[in-house]
Design a protein around this nucleic acid. Structure first.
Lengths: 230, 230
DNA sequence: GATTGACAGTATCATTCGATAGACATAACG
DNA sequence: CGTTATGTCTATCGAATGATACTGTCAATC
């Protein structure tokens, strides 16, 4: 086949890195806006200012490009949430954290979700929300990693915290359901239609803070009502 | 053009009603599973056991069929929620309901969302969840009615109830945000990936009741913490 | 300075899609 | 019976799409 050995980005430091990056950025926006089927390679190439076969050259196929875009979003999500997740596991692993600490960590977890969906100082905010929403309805295998990230970095630590609060295992169904609902309060802001219906064209810091303080209030209220095993 | 006057279902009692219905049912399932672009008219026709032009004959176009499917889902959603919504407006319009009544109505509203997404005794449960999820990411105009239904029958009465509880107008941003978050707890169960990750292949009545009792507990806890204007 | 490999560009292929043309069948109705 | 409206079928069109074959360009390397 005589394909160059470094196709599909094995070593990035080459002449074409600009092109590679431009394609990825454009694809990210277009896939987010139009979905996998909706975004045509021709439009991606045109907006990125490259020719059509460049996509196959750099990413192997349209699906390869999609995977790369998803991976990029996944990294951003991990960067936003991983620090809090790590602190949760630390607290739960070492010693016996107080109820106040558990609740505080849960609030931070919820805040991270809000930040991920609403904070426009982070890059690609809208694309991130859209991809995370797509996880739920597009069966595309390329979206699985993102789904797994959300499960491991949000639901799992959330359930672990709630489990401690009600003195039950984190795998207990009631515990998982409670964690899902608490996180659901924040996840609703991943919906573009919700953000749009709020009339929020720009999302400044005060709005993010406002959402976080309210969702923290709710989370604390829920946790306060959580006594030992029912 | 000599088109028959009763095209596109003006009067339904004709010979072709079976065909019409079979196309709509098949399309409902396929559009839900694959999206508008993903579901081809050829596959719809094949699975419905009709020929390809039958879709244009009965629904004018693929988009017409999509609209019909959305409208059908919309009616189901309205049927599930409208009774509770009506009771909310009744209570708020006549007299001054007690806090306990307001909270009870809010719980019923939230329960309706859970029912809508999880109750498998209602027809087309999964299709309904998928369409509602698609509302958030597909800009298709055909989905707007569904979006509007959710806003008028869930968010608006929810915000009205919360507004009374905190003694603020229903349009107040903080009030709307609180209502969104409370409903978000239930809305998370519209996510197929969530239901799947719970390992719930079948959703029996006990599971629905379990979810509802927990979400009611949370909602009451949140409302208890809601005192007059901050 | 010739060669080689990384990249860019043009032209084109094969497939799939929604839609339509137009023939055919059948039931309703005078 | 004959006409007309209603519904079904086969065949096909035109457009859009992902992918590829092939050529051209240019910098690095020996």
């Amino acid at each position: 086949m005589t394909l160059p050995a470094n196709r599909y980005r094995p070593n990035a430091r080459q002449r074409g890195e600009d092109t590679w990056r431009r394609i990825l950025d454009t694809a990210l926006a277009l896939f987010a806006a139009e979905g996998f089927d909706g975004a045509s390679t021709r439009e991606i190439a045109e907006r990125a200012g490259v020719n059509l076969p460049a996509i196959q050259y750099y990413f192997g196929s349209k699906e390869g490009l999609y995977r790369a875009a998803i991976a990029h979003v996944g990294e951003q999500v991990v960067q936003t949430i991983a620090p809090i997740t790590a602190r949760v596991w630390d607290s739960l692993g070492s010693g016996t954290p107080s109820r106040a600490q558990l609740i505080k960590l849960l609030c931070e977890l919820v805040n991270a979700v809000v930040t991920m969906f609403l904070d426009e100082t982070l890059p690609d905010r809208e694309n991130r929300s859209l991809f995370v929403s797509r996880v739920e309805i597009e069966h595309a295998a390329a979206l699985d990693p993102l789904n797994e990230i959300m499960r491991q970095h949000l639901l799992a630590p959330g359930a672990a915290l709630v489990g401690r609060l009600v003195d039950r295992p984190a795998e207990d169904e009631q515990v998982v359901l409670r964690a899902l609902m608490i996180l659901g309060q924040a996840k609703i802001f991943g919906s573009c239609s919700v953000v749009r219906s709020l009339g929020w064209n720009a999302i400044d810091e005060s709005r993010v803070n406002s959402v976080q303080s309210i969702v923290n209030e709710h989370t604390r209220a829920i946790c306060r009502a959580l006594k030992g095993p029912a």
